[in-house]
Design a protein around this nucleic acid. Sequence first.
DNA 1: ACGAGACATTGACAACTGTCGATGTCTTGG
DNA 2: CCAAGACATCGACAGTTGTCAATGTCTCGT
Lengths: 120, 120
Amino acid sequence: MTPTSLAVTPSTVCCSPLVREPLDAATAVSVARVFKAIGDPARLRLVSIVAAHAGGEACVCELIEPLGLSQPTVSHHLKVLVDAGLLHREQRGVWAYYSIVPAALDALATVLDTQQHTAP
Amino acid sequence: MTPTSLAVTPSTVCCSPLVREPLDAATAVSVARVFKAIGDPARLRLVSIVAAHAGGEACVCELIEPLGLSQPTVSHHLKVLVDAGLLHREQRGVWAYYSIVPAALDALATVLDTQQHTAP
DNA sequence: ACGAGACATTGACAACTGTCGATGTCTTGG
DNA sequence: CCAAGACATCGACAGTTGTCAATGTCTCGT
């Protein structure tokens, strides 16, 4: 920030200028929180299994077995994913159904896409 | 496991069938490792700052200040990103230049994209 | 060859995370 | 109203992670 009017300082010699504004600290914190949520094998698989089910939703009973984790642990991971905005929870009778929130995945993909191309 | 020959068991009633194969455990581990790498505010900003520089590369000296972290900490985060395959390191004289690995970001985006649409 | 500077590595520590067993809550069938 | 089942919450514990100060390594100019 606040670029000085000095033309050349020794620490600047090695470096190239910015071609766009990087993520600010606050945005980075909120985006990283979501990446962190899927940055766990169990949770990534949960998202994948839910997405692989017809209708894009699944109940908890179908998630425990393929993961090989205890029910409380699966419940914990699901809560993390819901808190991150990646999954939506809906109680229907006795069962709780979890479904993908496409917008959340899309937002992450957009962030990744932004980092790929360097402006001219 | 071990489904009985009974036609209807209470625990099966609630669930919908799979429309595609979810991520297997091994794939989930390796993909989650990369997501985890950018699932940290400091590292996400590092990637962003590197990508925002002309040529898609930056030297360490230009990364420390905007992050507000110590030099060893920045060096540590850079190592994590390199190990995850997200950044490439190249030593040029006294300076070390880090650059984006577009293919790595692309692979993540593809995984995210796969989870978004539900097959018919 | 020597010293300076850029960056990496080490060691240490507090904070966080994943996991489980035990227990609580809520809905439904009888 | 009561018991059963689906799921969430709690408490606890081992393992991991982010951070820094101190130190090491490597490259270049003098």
